[in-house]
């Protein structure tokens, strides 16, 4: 759902463009706190991952398959600010190299998919992580709910933008209900994919998952028992 050129009027496009530029500027500064000077290579490779994984087809039950949008998954994996940068770069590449999403609508697309989707998904994730039991399951549920909600909320944000600065006089309620309904289904697929991918990363390299820092702090400092037992003189 990349907004093409001409869907929103000039003031709305400019406003979302300014909002997107501010978000990216802030994210550039804050991502350095998440990844220090490794930002460029790590965010670049993560963006390449997001781009590749968006082309993957996941079977999501009942004979259907969907693809990942990945805002919430990326935010949980590498942190929200780096995720904003990765999504922005992917959107820029899609607009310039694939004509997917208009150049004048780039600000709108970044606002919807980097700011709103990542913000809602990751915000909900943090909120639920604080409430739910501090276990692997709790983390996966939180990420799943965040990923699910991010899709319809981004769609509704688009409807709101279209109602405010769209070029047609549409009954907002009906369109919001239709768009929301369709995107609830897409959100279910997004949630399923996010949970499975995140579960796989957690099983193999839990230390890489930015959003799981609270899970590993408890046991990383445990000492192995045999180091504590004094060795006999014979072994020296």
């Amino acid at each position: 759902m990349h907004v093409p050129d001409g869907f929103l009027d000039a003031p709305t496009s400019v406003a979302t463009g300014v909002l997107a530029a501010g978000t990216v500027a802030l994210a550039l500064r804050r991502a350095r706190e998440e990844l220090d000077e490794r930002t460029a290579p790590l965010a670049g490779l993560t963006a390449a991952f997001v781009f590749a994984v968006q082309m993957m087809n996941f079977p999501v039950g009942a004979g259907t398959s969907g693809h990942l949008i990945g805002g919430t998954l990326t935010a949980v994996l590498v942190g929200p600010w780096t995720a904003v940068l990765c999504m922005t770069v992917v959107l820029l590449v899609q607009a310039v190299l694939f004509a997917d999403g208009g150049l004048t609508a780039l600000g709108t697309n970044v606002t919807l998919m980097a700011l709103v989707a990542v913000g809602v998904g990751y915000g909900l994730f943090r909120l639920l992580v604080a409430v739910l039991p501090r276990t692997r399951t709790g983390l996966l549920v939180a990420a799943g709910v965040g990923a699910f909600a991010s899709v319809p909320v981004a769609a509704l944000a688009f409807v709101a933008l279209f109602a405010a600065g769209g070029v047609a006089d549409i009954p907002v309620g009906t369109v919001a209900a239709t768009m929301g309904g369709i995107h609830v289904l897409i959100g279910l697929g997004e949630a399923a994919i996010t949970v499975v991918v995140l579960g796989a990363v957690l099983a193999a390299r839990p230390d890489l998952v930015h959003g799981a820092a609270h899970l590993r702090s408890a046991d990383t400092l445990l000492r192995r028992p045999e180091v504590l037992t004094p060795r006999g003189p014979a072994q020296r």
């Binding site: 790590l42 499975v196 579960g199």
Partner: peptide
Amino acid sequence: GRRRGALRVVGAAAGALFIRSYERGERVH
């Protein structure tokens, strides 16, 4: 892809892809 549990297999592949990409980023750095 149509069998039950296929999502888990493809998801694990995507998870492995993330780990490999991230680790490659560390090596590149």
